[in-house]
Simulated assay, not measured.
Amino acid sequence: MSAICAFILTFSTLCASRVVSGVLSGPTKVHFTSYNMNLVLRWDPPHGAASGLLYTAEYKSKVSAGYSIGCVNISTLECDLTSLNEPIFEYGTYFGRVRAQSGSETSPWVESTSITMDKETVIGSPNIYLSSNRATIEVSIEDPVFALSSLRRVYSDITYNVTYWKDGQDEKAITISSIQQNRIVVDKLDPLTKYCFQVRINKQLNPTEPSTSVCESTGSEEDIPWVGVVVTFVVLGIAAALVAVSVVYRRSIYHFLCPKDSLPEHFKEYLLEQPNSTIYKAMQNPQPPEIIADVIVVEGGPLEVTAPTCIKQPDITVDQR
């Protein structure tokens, strides 16, 4: 009897292992990640799976009727959905699923949890730039670049927390909170001292990353900005040089600007020679016009002068034929 029971248990174990081995397990830890408004579906391979598996990933939004294809037959353990044909919206909620394939065997779909983009995306670190002037340091903040839209367009209410400390004394750091602008001037610092700064974007619902620490040294309180000194010195030097040149070479400059060129002698003779034209002579000695009148002699009487007479020309007709 014991032998029969042992045989039955062994047979059932072998059959059960065969059934399990014939079904490919699905991927594990299927989840979404979002960094600076990108959307990536990630997963781990099935437990005990051999190498060479291929994966297919699909996704859908909260308002979609069904899943859309994301990545097909890929060997990697992630699928970037940000740059697909169907756009991803910065305020959307999304779901995903993945299955594995080995030859003709296909695992069941494994679904992920949902993600809401604007509430769960990780906001990366900003870039900061420092410039010092005497005992003050100006901090300029550059927002991280988003895959979708921009930081200020998605989050209009964000602020910055600026933390600074003397180099080597980070335990005495000072934080300025709720700064809305991208530029701040920190004054009343110790002169000739190195300060380090770090900026974090303040957004309560989203995890954020602080910027890298950047350090800058302050100057002396009595320092005059060297750029202004150099520019002033150069301008005064150029002005003094121009005045000196104009005084020393004033005659040459005058003759250059107002030359006294003389015409050649044959040009002068030609221009001064009186023309021989009869018109020119008539213009020089004008004479009153002569009036010719008809004189008629009358016997026994005085002379009579009549007005000039005009001879009328006969009309000319054209014979038109």
Score class of each variant (00 low, 15 high):
14 L>Y: 13
180 Q>G: 10
193 T>C: 07
27 P>I: 13
41 L>F: 03
2 S>Q: 14
157 D>G: 09
265 E>K: 06
266 H>S: 13
155 Y>D: 02
223 D>Y: 04
182 N>S: 11
18 R>S: 14
313 Q>R: 11
177 S>R: 14
9 L>R: 07
228 G>R: 08
65 A>R: 10
9 L>I: 13
197 F>E: 04
9 L>P: 04
87 P>S: 12
170 D>Q: 12
223 D>F: 06
263 L>K: 08
76 T>W: 08
30 V>I: 12
277 S>Y: 03
266 H>A: 08
198 Q>Y: 08
107 S>W: 01
11 F>W: 13
134 R>K: 15
277 S>K: 04
281 K>P: 04
182 N>L: 12
2 S>A: 14
186 V>T: 00
212 T>K: 12
200 R>L: 09
34 S>F: 01
102 S>T: 00
170 D>E: 12
14 L>I: 15
206 N>C: 05
64 S>G: 12
226 W>I: 10
202 N>G: 06
284 Q>V: 14
156 S>T: 08
183 R>N: 14
263 L>F: 02
259 P>A: 00
224 I>F: 02
72 V>R: 10
250 R>T: 04
175 T>I: 10
83 S>F: 13
58 E>V: 08
275 P>H: 05
7 F>N: 10
95 F>C: 05
141 I>W: 03
42 R>A: 14
66 G>K: 14
275 P>V: 08
314 P>Y: 03
131 S>G: 03
268 K>T: 03
123 I>Q: 02
82 T>Q: 01
92 G>Q: 04
118 D>I: 04
129 Y>P: 02
321 R>A: 05
210 P>M: 08
60 K>P: 03
166 K>I: 15
70 G>D: 00
97 R>G: 01
117 M>S: 01
55 Y>S: 01
300 G>I: 00
44 D>N: 15
72 V>W: 07
130 L>W: 07
164 Y>D: 00
101 Q>I: 05
301 G>L: 07
244 A>L: 15
73 N>Y: 04
100 A>K: 04
136 T>E: 13
115 I>V: 09
234 V>T: 10
207 P>V: 11
70 G>I: 05
313 Q>I: 11
244 A>R: 14
235 V>M: 13
223 D>C: 01
162 V>M: 06
286 P>C: 13
39 L>P: 01
310 C>D: 03
192 L>G: 04
140 S>E: 15
162 V>R: 00
197 F>I: 02
159 T>C: 07
64 S>F: 07
239 A>V: 15
46 P>Y: 08
178 S>M: 07
123 I>A: 01
152 R>I: 00
95 F>P: 05
243 V>C: 10
9 L>T: 07
180 Q>C: 06
295 V>F: 08
269 E>A: 09
40 V>M: 03
29 K>D: 15
4 I>H: 11
78 E>R: 11
219 G>Q: 11
18 R>F: 14
10 T>A: 15
205 L>Y: 09
132 S>G: 10
92 G>T: 06
218 T>G: 02
27 P>F: 11
181 Q>F: 02
294 D>T: 06
85 N>E: 09
159 T>P: 02
283 M>K: 13
249 Y>V: 08
150 S>W: 00
220 S>G: 10
82 T>A: 01
229 V>R: 09
91 Y>N: 12
91 Y>P: 00
26 G>T: 12
83 S>V: 10
114 S>N: 10
28 T>P: 03
171 E>Y: 12
148 L>P: 00
162 V>S: 02
